[in-house]
Design a protein around this nucleic acid. Structure first.
Lengths: 230, 230
DNA sequence: GTCTATAACGAGATAGAC
DNA sequence: GTCTATCTCGTTATAGAC
């Protein structure tokens, strides 16, 4: 077997894998993750269902691949938005990351629903999704680290006693060089950011918030204040 | 037709309607809202599918009924939690409502997913869901109103120019007696609350937040600060 | 008037024989 | 890899029981 043949095979495999995922994403948008069916994907591609198993051993593995891709795409979007203002102050960088997340979510609503919406019945994400899922959070941690070094932040109120142990544990796990107050505030702000994005995307702001971009920018700015920025 | 006959009929109708919704909720938990099937509900109840149309004109109407029930159940839970501390200060009342929301969500994860999770493909909620969906928000508005009267709040920073018009409109729509800064902060905090709850419920806090009750209490308290309470 | 059952439609998924 | 027979689904028309 020549190396060109191997290369061509490898290339074909990559192309088919990409075609399968593209078609699966199309079905995700049309029917939702719960109804994602290997057979339907195969049919749309003119393949037979058993042929798909050469690329994805099970429906859950295809789902996992789509989830990792979605997290990576979101992470890349946030990183690009951040890189565009990398020289600015921490507050501006924080808001840029938030807007990167929102922009990606509005552009990819069904993939957003896949990773931050309702769990898919019968599916449990494996730990291999964790690195991709962590990218946005790592951006925030980096911003807070820089803000701490450059003294560009404000003091946070002390933690209640009942939370001190858990906050210490979280800080040790996530960012040992940041104070536990900051880490606890960051994790909360991280979840709250996705509350804002999810409400906009899933229709809860219908007839409540109309001019959503400035509303979001202001909310993201105040989230930043909550973690001690600005 | 005697009134007792009418009463018996009406009672039977209510009972069958409740049985249909109970079975539908069971399927919601097992398969997800996307796969909710009128035929399966009918089968489980020993009825024929066409008989269900006497009670719900379509599958979407059954979904709508489940959604309204879920919002009402959540609203009642929040109102009960609030009533238990009705004599306390606004901060305590705010946190109680937040904990009522979280408690209901943890007890009814599938119904929570139905109303705050991914949209059901092909389904669009009618405006008849709005009153039930508003109950928790109305509690928050009431608390902020009382805090304003009793001067139990702090000042909020001024709104950016780009948000002023929209904030005025939101205030006029939702709570004309509250300042637009407060209303904008409230709507953001409202969305952020569901970000916290959703992350816990949908597994995003897996290996990130372990001791979740004190974490949530602290986050809810800081949300209250964000709307000017405490 | 109120309800349930039968039967059917068109569309789609599925299992298994070949 | 293909074909077919048999399932599912939402929905409607119709007929008859109470």
């Amino acid at each position: 077997m020549s190396s060109t043949t191997q290369g061509a095979r490898a290339r074909a495999r990559i192309e088919v894998t990409a075609a399968i995922k593209d078609e699966a994403r199309r079905q995700l948008a049309a029917e939702g993750a719960a109804k994602l069916s290997l057979r339907a994907v195969a049919r749309a591609l003119g393949m037979v269902s058993s042929a798909l198993y050469r690329y994805f051993p099970s429906r859950d593995d295809l789902l996992t691949a789509l989830i990792i891709d979605a997290y990576d795409s979101l992470g890349e979007s946030a990183e690009t938005a951040h890189a565009a203002v990398a020289d600015a102050g921490p507050l501006r960088r924080w808001v840029a990351v938030c807007e990167g997340v929102r922009g990606w979510a509005l552009a990819h609503p069904h993939e957003y629903a896949l990773i931050y919406g309702s769990p898919v019945p019968g599916y449990s994400a494996p730990d291999t999704t964790i690195p991709a899922a962590s990218r946005v959070g790592l951006l925030f941690i980096g911003i807070l680290r820089d803000a701490r070094l450059s003294a560009g932040g404000t003091e946070l109120p002390p933690l209640p006693d009942e939370l001190r142990t858990e906050a210490d544990r979280m800080a040790a796990d996530l960012a040992p060089d940041l104070p536990p107050e900051t880490v606890a505030a960051l994790v909360a702000a991280w979840a709250q950011l996705y509350g804002l994005v999810g409400f906009e995307l899933f229709g809860q702001f219908h007839r409540v918030v109309e001019d959503r971009e400035p509303f979001f920018r202001h909310a993201a700015t105040r989230l930043a204040h909550g973690v001690g920025l600005g």
